[in-house]
């Protein structure tokens, strides 16, 4: 058997490699990955990449159109828009990551309990979550932020709370399916306790669906943060949040339309990136997973 050193047959290759092989064939998914990777680089390397200090004002340069002294022009205070967009990626990604992490952890916990325990616990949890889901998404976030007050932390909390029922529902669905599988019954028959069955056998099988939903929820979370900041209920000035930049730039759309439109484009491209990535991951992880 020594001479058989070539590539392993497909079925024996690691799942990671198989995943990448399927993902790679999807050009749109690769585009999404590229957008997300570029965004992550922009956020991490912001101080090195930004041509100017995003907070530095220069009244003589205010509302300067793109192309001249500033690549993407200057805003109503003469601040460099390109630099503010680069720093703004930090806010978008941070709100997205932290709130999705919050929702994924809490939603997985609730969904696992509801799905695995079942019965009255399941009923009570799911009906409560239905109330949250019955709420128009923006109104829920608005209610939370208007109660707690605007700001970065409360925005993250509002977005996280908004996303939790969705995660709980999806995880509950897959836990319900997984707990009927033979290997789970085998583990139980072998004497494994509930905790062990859930942690070792049920949850690992939820990971792929969790990854897909996290990517898709990143897109929605970034959109929601932008919407809240646009309404003045989210991140507060002078923090360079994209939604906030659109909101303040709105007062100048007749004089300098680039101030409001460029940050909006950044939001759209970022959200598109996460949507493409999420769709691609879903197709690569499980072609049968519902759209």
């Amino acid at each position: 058997m020594q001479e058989e050193t070539g590539r392993l047959p497909v079925a024996y290759r690691s799942t990671g490699a198989a995943l990448w092989r399927r993902f790679r064939r999807n050009r749109l998914a690769l585009a999404g990955l590229l957008i997300v990777a570029l965004l992550a680089c922009a956020a991490m390397l912001a101080p090195a990449l930004a041509p100017a200090d995003p907070a530095r004002q220069s009244l003589e340069d205010k509302r300067m159109p793109p192309g001249g002294k500033y690549l993407l022009g200057a805003d109503e205070f003469g601040r460099d828009i390109a630099s503010r967009l680069i720093y703004g990626s930090r806010i978008a990604l941070m709100v997205g990551l932290v709130s999705v992490l919050f929702a994924a952890v809490l939603g997985t916990a609730l969904g696992t309990v509801a799905g695995y325990v079942g019965g009255a616990v399941d009923e009570a949890l799911m009906r409560t979550l239905d109330v949250l889901l019955a709420f128009p998404y923006l109104l829920l976030a608005i209610a939370i932020v208007s109660a707690l007050g605007p700001g970065l932390q409360n925005t993250i909390l509002a977005v996280g709370v908004w996303a939790t029922p969705g995660f709980a529902r999806v995880i509950r669905g897959s836990v319900l399916a997984i707990k009927e599988q033979e290997y789970v019954q085998a583990a139980r028959a072998a004497g494994a306790g509930t905790g062990r069955v859930v942690v070792r056998h049920v949850l690992p099988n939820c990971i792929s669906i969790l990854i897909v939903y996290s990517a898709l929820y990143m897109a929605s979370a970034i959109l929601l943060e932008a919407a809240l900041s646009f309404l003045g209920l989210g991140v507060q000035p002078p923090t360079p949040s994209w939604g906030l930049m659109v909101s303040t730039g709105r007062d100048f759309i007749t004089l300098a339309p680039h101030i409001a439109t460029l940050p909006g484009l950044a939001i759209a491209v970022t959200v598109l990136g996460f949507n493409l990535l999420g769709d691609g991951l879903r197709d690569a992880l499980d072609p049968k997973m519902p759209a």
């Binding site: 932008a226 939604g243 659109v246 409001a260 439109t261 909006g264 939001i267 759209a268 959200v271 493409l276």
Partner: peptide, 14 residues
């Protein structure tokens, strides 16, 4: 896909 990704307030402004 792009339509799903655009923030609605930005669509309006454009």
């Amino acid at each position: 896909l792009f339509g799903l990704s655009m923030p609605i307030f930005w669509t309006g402004i454009v």
